[in-house]
């Protein structure tokens, strides 16, 4: 079963696409569109983090008993990504494109290496350990991701 991995990976790609929209708008120096696109991206990211932190991770932790392991590291990275998103959006609000690009650069690398760890390690572990709960869990995750 790779249902969790597929669903969550697909949502990572969805967030990447929204981020790319913001980047395109920044490339065109369209600050209104850039801000709107970036806010949309941020919402999707926050919904993704929420789905993980409130549903996926607790289920995984309850099942495996690992609460200080990989999920804790992922939570810490979520916190770092949240800060970077705030800083990047702030730069867009102030029309400071160069600053935005600097924050976005850091954000992209942070986000991509974070996604890589989840997609290659954590999600496969979830699929392996949570196979019994999958249908209900998937339904819940899907609802939570669709908020954004």
């Amino acid at each position: 079963m790779t249902a969790i991995r597929s669903l969550m990976t697909e949502d990572h790609r969805h967030c990447d696409d929204l981020f790319a929209d913001a980047e395109l708008a920044v490339g065109k120096k369209d600050s209104q569109a850039a801000k709107a696109c970036f806010e949309h991206f941020q919402q999707a990211m926050l919904a993704h983090f929420d789905a993980e932190e409130k549903t996926l991770f607790p289920t995984f932790e309850a099942k495996t008993g690992m609460s200080m392991g990989p999920t804790q590291v992922m939570r810490m990275e979520h916190a770092q990504i949240r800060v970077l998103m705030d800083e990047a959006l702030q730069a867009l609000v102030l029309n400071q494109f160069d600053d935005y690009l600097g924050y976005a650069d850091t954000l992209v690398i942070m986000m991509q290496q974070h996604n890589m760890k989840e997609e290659n390690m954590l999600y496969p572990m979830c699929d392996q350990h949570l196979s019994g709960e999958t249908p209900e869990l998937l339904a819940r995750l899907e609802t939570e991701l669709n908020v954004a």
């Binding site: 392991g69 990989p70 590291v73 992922m74 810490m76 760890k117 290659n120 390690m121 572990m125």
Partner: peptide, 9 residues
């Protein structure tokens, strides 16, 4: 697993 924790390490 190791790889996940390696962020700290």
């Amino acid at each position: 697993m190791q790889g996940l924790l390696s962020f700290d390490q």
